[in-house]
Write a protein that binds this DNA or RNA. Structure first.
Length: 278
DNA sequence: CATTACCTGCAA
DNA sequence: TTGCAGGTAATG
């Protein structure tokens, strides 16, 4: 389910289906499993992760958390109890007769379960930056300046390329490879620009582009390209609307020159070298 | 910083 | 058969 918009859609669709229900049993596949018998109190998104809060027994114990990170190919689905699929890695039998299924072809996904305090001590959550939809323009400026100007930060960090900065979840939580390229195209910033080179006006444009891309993607239901669709089986419409990602050799919607593909921060990177000057 | 590893399927 | 895929952590 990859990026923030897909996680947000998942959160929005799951919450009304799960809240108040109980998770009775956890299984790897069809067959026997372990009892859980805990009531779901809420569903939350943190960056790209989905957190399912489990109610504490009255004053007896702490809240528990069931949390997921989809990495490259994971998704959460609501399926019938007898529905089988070889890529369902875990299934959670609910009190309403359905199963919540964690489907993950490539097995990179992560599932956490335990006392909330313990789960949130995981390095992923401990180091997660401010959410991409919550960060203010001032907050973004501060982050970029802190990383680019502070002499205490090693030289290697000061040379950070803007795309690497955006992809690093410790800076801002939720932006992934598709959104990063779309945001930078919209802001007319080359993915390899050094963050220390960005002026105030560019940072302002970056911030508004970031919000615009994420909010539009959420509005359209996220990107369904191969592995991801909604918990109820719907597919998102953002992939059809993207401007650069996966469009190498096609015309830039702004200047009509051809979209380039390169590698930045170890990831396939799409940009328009005319609109996004280095 | 760049590269590799993790895993599986699919398109070139 | 090779290379690539929405992500992250480990390693050099």
């Amino acid at each position: 389910m990859p990026e923030l918009p897909e996680a947000e859609i998942t959160k929005r669709k799951l919450e009304p289906l799960l809240k108040g229900k109980r998770i009775l049993l956890v299984r790897r596949s069809l067959g026997k499993g372990g009892n859980l018998w805990k009531k779901i109190s809420g569903v939350e998104r943190r960056g790209k992760a989905i957190l399912i809060w489990l109610e504490p027994k009255l004053g007896v114990e702490a809240s528990y958390l069931l949390a997921f990170h989809m990495r490259m190919s994971g998704k959460l689905l609501m399926v019938n109890r007898n529905h089988h699929d070889k890529y369902i890695r875990r299934r959670f039998q609910l009190s309403d007769g359905k199963d919540l299924a964690f489907h993950d072809v490539r097995r990179f996904g992560v599932v956490w379960y335990g006392k909330a305090k313990k789960v949130l001590q995981d390095n992923y959550f401990k180091t997660l930056g401010e959410d991409a939809l919550a960060i203010s323009l001032e907050g973004l400026k501060k982050l970029l300046n802190a990383k680019s100007i502070t002499p205490l930060i090693p030289l290697t960090l000061r040379g950070t390329k803007i795309k690497s900065f955006l992809l690093n979840q410790k800076n801002i939580a939720g932006i992934g490879n598709i959104c990063a390229d779309e945001i930078l195209w919209k802001a007319k910033i080359h993915p390899e620009r050094k963050i220390s080179d960005l002026n105030d006006n560019e940072i302002k444009t970056l911030w508004s582009s970031l919000r615009a891309v994420l909010l539009l993607s959420i509005k359209l239901g996220g990107s369904s390209m191969r592995d991801w669709f909604h918990p109820d089986g719907d597919s998102g419409g953002y992939f059809e609307k993207r401007a650069v990602y996966g469009r190498a050799g096609k015309k830039c919607f702004s200047c009509k020159s051809l979209i380039n593909k390169s590698k930045v921060a170890g990831r396939g990177t799409y940009f328009c070298k005319v609109c996004q000057k280095k």
